[in-house]
């Protein structure tokens, strides 16, 4: 499988320059995902806007490639945050990129959890912990809805898309209804929507 390089062009040069570039790329990926991971409160979906911001500002990949990565991350089992780190890292710098990005994503919370584990009995139930969450949770909520909106907009451009938009809205509506009302398992919702997609599009 070839690694696609979306926005960066590797100029032909000496081996050293190429290696240096790859090193920088891995470093850049690692730092970017450490930053994202440090503020990845709320886990998966709330992280999407942060990843998108980093991806845009560093010119990692096109919007449609980004949308595809998020889509596959949501489909695959496991947290969408680490999945998207894996896939974006892979597309930018191959398997090493995938590893570096995933570790970068996990590392901040990993360190924090170990610190929490050390002071577990001291901090539980403290007012400042609750007060922090009090301000944090509304923002996480907004970020999640923001991510949903961006996912909806992604990959919908040009004309004659009324059908696509309408059908997407119908599936979204039905899926939300099934998830909330009948507490359907996400796996069935994904499978059902895939089938609906084959029929509708």
């Amino acid at each position: 499988m070839r690694v696609k390089n979306f926005s960066r062009e590797k100029k032909p040069g000496t081996r050293n320059i190429i290696y240096e570039k790859v090193d920088n790329l891995l470093g850049e990926l690692f730092i970017a995902f450490v930053k994202i991971g440090l503020f990845s409160f709320g886990g998966g979906y709330a992280v999407i806007p942060s990843i998108q911001y980093q991806a845009n500002s560093l010119g990692w990949m096109s919007d449609s490639a980004f949308g595809k990565s998020i889509l596959i991350s949501g489909m695959a089992p496991g947290p969408i945050a680490t999945n998207s780190a894996t896939l974006i890292g892979y597309q930018i710098a191959g398997i090493n990129g995938a590893i570096v990005s995933t570790i970068g994503m996990i590392l901040p919370s990993f360190i924090l959890i170990i610190i929490v584990a050390l002071f577990f009995y001291k901090i539980r139930g403290k007012q400042w912990v609750k007060a922090t969450l009090y301000g944090l949770k509304p923002i996480i909520t907004v970020l999640i809805f923001y991510a949903a909106f961006h996912l909806f907009v992604l990959g919908k451009e040009g004309s004659m898309l009324n059908w696509t938009i309408g059908a997407t809205l119908v599936i979204v509506g039905l899926a939300v209804y099934g998830l909330l009302k009948y507490k359907l398992h996400p796996l069935w919702v994904i499978a059902g929507s895939g089938l609906a997609g084959i029929i509708l599009f």
Binding site: I70, G74, M75, F145, A147, T168, V176
Partner: peptide
Amino acid sequence: KGVHAAVIALVL
């Protein structure tokens, strides 16, 4: 495309 809609639903 259908799965895309499902993922949006999960996020919502």
